[in-house]
Design a protein around this nucleic acid. Sequence first.
DNA 1: CGCTTCCTTGAGGAAGCTCAAGCGGGGTGG
DNA 2: CCACCCCGCTTGAGCTTCCTCAAGGAAGCG
Lengths: 260, 260
Amino acid sequence: MRLVAKSEGGAPVAPSVAHAGNTLLPLAGKRASRPNEGLLDLCLPLGPEEEISGEFDRLFLHPRHLPRKEVLYRAGDAFAALHVVRAGTFKTVMLSEDGREQITGYHMAGDIVGLDGLGQPLHNCDAIALEESDVCSLPLTRLNELARDPRLMAGLFQLMARDVRRSQDLIMLLGGMCAEERIATFLLNLSHRRRVRGLSPDDLALCMTREEIASFIGLKLETVSRILSRFQGEGHIRVQGRAVTLLDHAGLRRIATPSG
Amino acid sequence: MRLVAKSEGGAPVAPSVAHAGNTLLPLAGKRASRPNEGLLDLCLPLGPEEEISGEFDRLFLHPRHLPRKEVLYRAGDAFAALHVVRAGTFKTVMLSEDGREQITGYHMAGDIVGLDGLGQPLHNCDAIALEESDVCSLPLTRLNELARDPRLMAGLFQLMARDVRRSQDLIMLLGGMCAEERIATFLLNLSHRRRVRGLSPDDLALCMTREEIASFIGLKLETVSRILSRFQGEGHIRVQGRAVTLLDHAGLRRIATPSG
DNA sequence: CGCTTCCTTGAGGAAGCTCAAGCGGGGTGG
DNA sequence: CCACCCCGCTTGAGCTTCCTCAAGGAAGCG
């Protein structure tokens, strides 16, 4: 998932543009892409399918259901908890002074949401459900209990570190890629995240509007729409509204990393 | 330094695009822009002027001098230490699969460099001195000692959290701003960081090439050069190679945040 | 002093944006 | 239940912005 790294299978993998997300899942392919990732599973072994158990019974609140468009927290809210996505997806959004929106993260089941508030009193972005979703929350008070255990602490560090790295991947995309590269990268990233979760890597349910996708990867919605159509025309994908089927991973990868 | 936040003086401040930097300085204006920032001073009270003292005598290694262009660490290196910039400046650079460079951070005296490796075995970017510089290193082994103290730990969390936020600011810039906005924002950010350090906020010594600036804010070097010239023509700044003098903060701010 | 590296400036072109129109699907109210 | 409407998506045409390519100049360094 590192930009210059290889995936589990050895094939080059696109940068984790979709803020790939703080996965806590016991991964399908276990020995995960980044070495040392196992520690995380150890520290916060939560999967959407499993019951919360053991140490975490004590710490996490019961799952909570959020309808589509429900706000988990807003920029300016006190940082009160971390959240694990049990089902559904969330976006994190920053609003600039002059009203422009920028989506900074896209979080799927197993990801952690709320790390942006860690170590600070306030959140600095909104977190909003993109579809019917469930989250388990870990209130700050209990988080402090957790902080006494160095092992769990180390896990948290790794989660934050991943967040930093994911942001850097997004920076690379926004700083250097053209529109086609961005979209190919975006699609491959979502695909990869689904594979890691044991889901079909070819059938993506975007559950974002074109505008949200565009905001995430620094384009305009028309450009996203156009390029999706172009990719479809070239046989790389099939587009049916928000359902996108990847037909040609190799081709997309070629587009995502021109010379490499 | 937050995107929608106000500076100490109450005037709106540009996003901390220059990865503004993990300042550990006992700030000139003490009660710093972000509430709670004082804690940091408490935790890692290092300033370039002061002697390392107290608890940190034990932890930090003696200052080390690096000439211009010297590599502090490289992507792929084992994460072995955190570094505090005592003098000079550093850039952090990511290299993509296909060879493109992206500068992800610009670190001045008092900033911490190396947080990208925290919680992970390997660094994922290069850190390189932009001029004659001094750093104090905190080796991982001693960092672990530090980790036993919850207060210091909290400080570290805040540093990482800031890194996350700074990245998000850069994402906002790269995702939504036009060239003029980017450059105005970049200049204002450097200015702000100098002010915070008690240095003249109007005289910037960029100590980066136009190409590095361009990479940092997602443009091409010719565009940077052109827009600096344009700003000079409009009386906003004075350009003499890498020495830039800000003449019209208000104007720059107007450019940086169009409607706001 | 000549080299290299960096910076500036111009002209032309391409990528992506803006504006605009039309379509489709799903939800709501009649 | 149907019609309508709204929202999201697609597609086109023209335009702006920024990039590319190119040439010349300045400054630092051996």
